[in-house]
Design a binder for these strands. Sequence first.
DNA 1: CCACGAAGTTGGCCATCCAC
DNA 2: GTGGATGGCCAACTTCGTGG
Length: 312
Amino acid sequence: MRFEGLDLNLLVALDAILEEGSVVRASQRLHLSQPAMSAAIGRLRQYFNDDIFTMSRRKLVPTPLARSLERPTRDILLRVRANLISAPGFEPANSQRRFRIVVSDYASIVLMHPVMKRVYREAPGISLELLPFNDRVDDQLERGEVDFIIMPDVNAVDDHPRQHLFADEFCCIAWTGSRKIGRSISLGRYLQLGHVTAQFGPIRRPSFEEKALARSGYKRRIEVIAPNFTTMVASVIGTDRVATVHKRLAVIFARSFPLKLLHAPVRIPAFREMLQWPASFHADPALVWMRETISDVASEIDRTPAARMRFG
DNA sequence: CCACGAAGTTGGCCATCCAC
DNA sequence: GTGGATGGCCAACTTCGTGG
């Protein structure tokens, strides 16, 4: 069967080869043999009257025409998935859908925990896969590999819809047993103490607070670099170290751990958490439902501004 | 008009070749 | 040795001619 003379299955093959950069890997991905995939390239060559791929130093190189087809092909396939495969008859209460969400451990605790409780009540068949940040989130959005990314709005990926979730600000935390740190902390003492910070992902991306402090020009001594915010908070317990963390996270942790919360003696800009999703999935009813659920929980959180949250 | 069978087409796999 | 291309073969499907 053809659409205007084109076998649409060839678009699936083209997308797989462009993404994998290899006929063998593309064939494995589509559960075809390598010759079948090679034949698909042959049919693409015939239809487009172009080499589509050439070999250079044992690497498969897409021709300019193939490159120009990459974006529209992926867009078409993502739209088919969003509008034809996922869409029909989405009912939260009966759906077995899995959502893949890239989110920090901070937003997992502050936002996703109440979201998960609500999903558990309203859509018990739905599962959530929370994924850590990596260096190719923009690529993952582009390819539709993830359904949502939750991150600071300053890191937003262009060309994909976004939505504000909630704002937060920063405070300091210290162990309640610390004798060097009292009920407040001066700038001088803050800069004298050992600090705990966090860096993320394979390239050790600094946290929002780390970048803000670096911009302010203050020199502080980092004694612990944690892989995430949760470890960062736990790392001050039993020490005289101080950590500068999101206030909403600090308030939650202080309910369970021996932590005192202090006003940060340096000014760190307020922080806005944001939701992004692939533009191709914009109309997918399942994503619309999850977007509304997350947004609804976030607006409840945002109803209590971080500045009005009481310490202790 | 419908059922049936032969021939053609398509796209899969396996084996193999070729280039690097 | 690895990765892509090709030839031969096979199964499924389509097309077309023929007979009832």
